[in-house]
Design a protein around this nucleic acid. Structure first.
Lengths: 344, 344
DNA sequence: GTTAGCACTCTTTCGTTATGAGTGCTAAAT
DNA sequence: ATTTAGCACTCATAACGAAAGAGTGCTAAC
């Protein structure tokens, strides 16, 4: 469909535009060392590439700019695998070097480092704890009317929630209840906790407590609270560096979106595994029309549990970013898988 | 020091500039219904006010703009107390209507609502839990080498932390330890926990466990982890609305600062109680030179435990914001004090 | 098939020139 | 002794036009 020369020229144009953010013209292209065609030839090819929809002009007599289709083709067919610098490698490995900090800190760290390495905005969706299993349950009474329910998972994650106690419940009752719950629910994955609570323990509880329902309900609710992982965003203001975002309205659109946790979650919610690139309007979100998003999931074993992503301008250094994101996601998968597997 | 008329004119100028963001000139001032002086008279007064440092010109023949000193004087001497609209009152009361959500959610909510009411950026420093007392301690072993330490306070707040177990420790030992800890440390304020841990329990532990030190150390560390409350920021992008922040560099400066948790904490760290207004360079932070900050602390009983703040342009609606912030801080104090006092 | 040449287009820049809002000062009016 | 009208002056902003520069498309020659 494209001749070798067209491919070559398209590649150079996109590479150049990614670097300079300036529309690229035939004259300047021809000056490059590795280009041996005359401006006129290049102009002809450019005209063809434009007709095919890979390039665009900003006005009648401007240089060419890659279209979304152009970027898409570039990403799909012309990406050289790119290498990782030693410093980048060590930076990434340092993220999980210190396990003691706890998962949340490490994930936040990943976001920060990723944004620093790329100077784009990074989004990291922390591991969802659905598939992690209950290690221990506690109910700590605070006063006569309220108590804290605590769920500890086998990965060391802690969920907690304040709830109202039914009237007239005795500390001894609570203790009994905690024992029953731990007895029956240890090892149950969080995703099934809600169901199991009623299925496994309701009968037993009934025998021991007259007021068990309210408590069970609460517990079930606490467990269903956060089915998704936490979201971390690094380098939110990096978008200010991009010359195409000198326009305050554009920045605002993106910034506004970044403040909406739900939108951001929708953006990076895990779908297919592997690396995904969404360019401009390929993203559902209106505010993303001038941005590209590169996402990769990471896994525990074969189960994807979270996502890392880079949000930048359409004119993104795709090659470099994809390499980095790929590397980090594999690193995270390795670390988490090892961690998880030695545990269970 | 200032004649009545100068006071009057200064007030009108500042009020006008707060509304319009445009330098105000004598001609337009004189047109106002409540001004009965001629432009020339006003010009004379303006010149005097400028000489005294309350007004500035952006260039030789422009209208006047309030100086920092002008704003300061305005805030200190000319603020009419301002009233709260019914809708605002209900919005604020709604924040703590639903106690079940837990403190953190409520505080986050406060930030959101405050930013929506003012259309500036709000900062809420959640209650610090230093003075809250230990209700219960737990150590939940995860596997042979690690465990989760959990501290529950009498306010229902939960702190938790993953830590490494010393080699060869037995589940029975852990149980013993937890019992000792609970026995000795219940009721201890978090701020003294670290000290008390060693003072009260070390002797006892020594008798029962050969390897107690590592565990104690860890526990002490977990308790010292977050002496300060959590920080919530609402309406980060509201700054984009301000015409004096059309300049992308200015916005960036402020945005960058808002991303740095530490800087933000420094900004609103509780100092004196009552309402504080910091105008422009009165703030230590460089990035704040075009902004004003209004802070108020809220308390439990007489002890200030957190801060609410509004960050906006120097040209802020001081009167309205101060009224709102004052009202909310009192509301929070009431709610928290009631909550806390029924507990202890 | 490639390229030189040329006319044409469109943006950007720069100086020039109004226009208008605003000031400061002086002198007259109150 | 204030207050105000009048006027000359300053400066930012907008509008205009001209010139420069980068780039294109097309035609004709190589």
């Amino acid at each position: 469909m494209l001749t070798d020369r067209q491919l070559f020229i398209l590649q150079i144009i996109i590479d150049d535009f990614i670097r300079s953010a300036q529309p690229v013209g035939s004259r300047n292209l021809a000056k490059k060392d590795d280009v041996s065609y005359s401006p006129a030839t290049i102009r002809n090819e450019m005209a063809d590439l434009e007709e095919m929809g890979f390039l665009e002009k900003t006005h009648t007599s401007s240089g060419r700019v890659p279209s979304e289709k152009g970027y898409r083709y570039y990403v799909d067919h012309m990406l050289s695998p790119g290498s990782i610098r030693r410093s980048e490698r060590t930076a990434i490995h340092s993220i999980f070097a210190d396990r003691q900090e706890g998962m949340e800190k490490a994930v936040q760290n990943a976001a920060t480092i990723l944004s620093e390495l790329t100077s784009y905005t990074s989004i990291v969706l922390g591991p969802k704890f659905n598939d992690h299993k209950v290690k221990n349950l506690q109910i700590i009474p605070i006063d006569r009317t309220s108590a804290v329910a605590i769920i500890v998972t086998d990965t060391g994650h802690v969920e907690n929630r304040l709830f109202s106690l039914p009237d007239g419940i005795e500390p001894a009752d609570i203790e009994k209840m905690v024992n029953i719950l731990n007895d029956r629910l240890t090892g149950v994955p969080l995703s099934e906790l809600r169901r199991k609570i009623f299925q496994e323990t309701a009968q037993l509880m009934k025998r021991h407590l007259h007021n068990y329902e309210a408590v069970l309900n609460m517990f079930a609710e606490a467990s269903g609270g956060q089915p998704i992982g936490k979201l971390f965003i690094g380098g939110k203001t990096n978008i200010f560096n991009q010359p195409e975002f000198r326009d305050i309205e554009k920045v605002r659109l993106v910034m506004d979106m970044m403040e909406k946790e739900h939108d951001m979650y929708e953006l990076v919610r895990p779908t297919e595994s592997g690396i995904q690139v969404k360019i401009g309007t390929e993203n559902a979100e209106q505010a993303m029309e001038d941005c590209s998003l590169i996402t990769a999931s990471y896994s525990v074993g074969n189960e994807p549990v979270g996502t890392i992503a880079i949000l930048g301008p359409k004119r993104m250094e795709y090659s470099r970013v994809i390499t980095l994101v790929d590397f980090l996601s594999h690193d995270m998968t390795n670390v988490l898988t090892r961690l998880y597997n030695t545990r269970s």
